[in-house]
């Protein structure tokens, strides 16, 4: 699904990602781990083709990333799971869910749907799958944070990308809901055969739900192996503090 060959990115003097070579197969569930500022978000942004790498080659679904046009083409390949506050608050839930279809819709249909929602059954089914079927016509801003994330997930279900990228998908909800939400996300990608790449803070959560761990620290790959093979010592070393002088706040 993703193939990186010596992909690197720097912001001015800061090396955000040292040359990285990595392959992620279709259907894999990869957790990106490591301390803040380690390069997780940079890597996710590169995979989303938000910006091109400074060096190296990146291909998404076998095609060079720089040749992919943003918009519909990219939306079919890669979807982004937002952190929960990326919905349009004043719209009804049904429109926020149906926004997943905008890449496929033309002008007339997009406009008409705001008056009388089109393809309502798709939206209803998706909401039922994420566990909040009764919220279809509710105003989105009235939903709780966890429910809003479920709406965002329902939108992704309609978008049907081949890979989902998530930046700390459960950092905004409490631990009990985080577990449920992650189980839901992982269950859905497993059913659909979607690739999942997510940056994760919670170590046990990541090891339980993801098949592979890619650990980054200061822009460099520390280890890359199946979740089952990761040892507690490795985790401790990954997050260990350096001496106070060289390490910033983070």
């Amino acid at each position: 699904m993703f193939a990186l060959e010596g992909v690197a990115k720097r912001y001015g003097p800061l090396e955000a990602l040292a040359p990285l070579t990595l392959t992620i197969a279709p259907g894999e569930r990869v957790a990106l781990m490591g301390p803040s500022g380690g390069g997780k978000t940079t890597l996710l942004n590169l995979l989303a083709a938000a910006f091109p790498p400074d060096a190296g080659r990146l291909s998404i679904a076998g095609r060079p990333a720089e040749g992919l046009r943003p918009g519909r083409e990219l939306a079919r390949l890669v979807g982004i799971m937002p952190q929960g506050f990326d919905l349009v608050p004043s719209l009804a839930v049904v429109h926020n869910v149906l926004a997943g279809r905008l890449g496929e819709w033309g002008f007339a249909r997009s406009l008409a749907s705001l008056v009388v929602p089109r393809e309502r059954e798709l939206a209803r089914t998706a909401l039922a799958r994420v566990g909040i079927p009764e919220k279809l016509y509710e105003r989105t801003e009235r939903l709780s944070g966890g429910e809003q994330q479920r709406v965002a997930l329902a939108r992704l279900l309609l978008q049907r990308p081949r890979a989902i990228l998530a930046d700390e998908p459960v950092s905004a909800v409490d631990p009990a809901r985080a577990e449920a939400l992650l189980a839901l996300l992982v269950g859905i990608v497993a059913e659909e055969g979607t690739t999942l790449v997510a940056s994760m803070h919670g170590v046990p959560l990541a090891l339980r739900h993801f098949s592979r761990v890619v650990a980054l620290r200061r822009g460099r790959l520390v280890f890359d192996r199946p979740s089952a093979a990761v040892t507690p010592e490795e985790i401790e070393a990954l997050y260990a503090l350096e001496d106070a002088g060289t390490r910033g706040v983070a």
Partner: peptide, 19 residues
């Protein structure tokens, strides 16, 4: 942020305007 999310879902600029 909501506009970025709409573009990520494949929306073009006039759809971002409408939705």
């Amino acid at each position: 942020a909501p506009l970025r999310a709409l573009r990520a879902a494949g929306a073009r600029e006039w759809q971002v305007l409408l939705y």
